[in-house]
Nucleic acid binder design. Structure first.
Lengths: 207, 207
DNA sequence: CTGTGTGAAGGCTTTCACAGCC
DNA sequence: GGCTGTGAAAGCCTTCACACAG
């Protein structure tokens, strides 16, 4: 459990997925699951699942499987309570506004607490529950509320400079939707979601 | 060029990224670029870029670099003209509607030609240019227009069954936004974008 | 001297095979 | 018999080191 730094990133990704599968099992009243069943729900091989779990301990019962509640709790602990972090959204344009309305985040324990845009008053498609502030209020807000995570959905041409501002203000993790590479200091983590690249990739695999 | 099947998936992803960087260089009037410069723009190491290119040939001039136009054309060819494929969107809810309005796709050569929803008439946040049809028209549309790619943005509980319908109707590639694993035949490719998992993953890396 | 192309080395993940426990 | 835990093997991808071309 203290070897946190040594769990590979890919395993961390899968832990989130296992976690979600476990929650569904729990909702269905199951209290035990085998690595085989759980791995199938998650779309991986059972050996992979067991190896992933082995990074932080032994929680299964041979001949039986894993206790759903126990395993779920352990994974939650490994992933960290940091998941209750507040998140801000920068760039409330087309995609950004949509993300504000998307409630898939809340379900998993995240909440977008504020959004920022160059023009907070431009007409938005959706009635939003989240306040939209002027772009130049970002640094103040981040420092005041100790925000560490940001979702970036601004146009390519200003993505890097906005990212720099975020980092300077104390942001440590960025979920980047702008289709461009962001250069950040080592202590900052960036995960990029590039929709066009995903599509292009798919098209390659069409015969 | 004919060893298409042997280019690793990760390389294919990066080719899309290189392609975009090359287009920007071309727009700026540059006609030559070194592997070092291009790799930095793409956020990878220069050796990686050269290895990626080596999968399908030799296009550089030693001591000078690559011709922007040439390299761009070659990558386009490798990725396949399949990128001009029409794409349909299934599930025009919150996230789905947003994707319809997002024009990042068109820029890269994709066009969402139609959308489908259980209730095509429910109020949409945005004025959409794309027609929304009833869910039960999907198979007909796919067969009629020879559509091969679909974006799936439906609720978890029906994702698998909708995916099955798509596959049966002839879809070969799915960009999946539903946070669940999709089981599909081998000839079908699925790329998943799981926003909650991305956030959770980021939160792990916050100290 | 600059910058590509590439065999070899290294590192990281996944899978196998099977020992060990219920 | 069923299922976990794990060292060893295999596979995959990245990086190094350097030969070679302009």
């Amino acid at each position: 459990m203290n070897a946190k730094a040594e769990i590979p990133r890919k395993t961390i990704y899968r832990l989130s997925i296992y976690q979600r599968c476990l929650q569904r099992l729990a909702d269905n009243g199951q209290d035990t699951v085998s690595s085989d069943a759980l791995s199938k729900a998650a779309g991986v091989k059972s050996t992979q699942l067991r190896k992933d779990i082995a990074y932080f301990g032994q929680f299964g019962t041979r001949g039986l499987g894993y206790n759903v509640q126990t395993l779920s709790s352990v994974i939650t602990e490994v992933l960290g309570t940091a998941r209750l972090q507040p998140v801000i959204l920068v760039g409330a344009g087309n995609l950004g506004s949509a993300l504000l309305g998307y409630n898939g985040f809340n379900k998993e324990g995240f909440e977008i607490t504020a959004a920022f845009d160059l023009d907070p008053d431009r007409p938005r498609p959706v009635a939003l529950k989240v306040p939209i502030y002027r772009h130049d209020k970002i640094a103040e807000f981040i420092k005041l509320h100790g925000v560490k995570m940001a979702i970036l959905a601004v146009p390519v041409h200003c993505a890097q400079s906005v990212a720099n501002d975020l980092v300077d203000a104390g942001i440590q993790a960025i979920l980047n939707f702008s289709p461009t590479f962001l250069e950040v200091p080592e202590h900052v983590t960036v995960n990029s979601v590039d929709l066009a690249v995903e599509l292009e990739n798919l098209s390659y695999f069409i015969r």
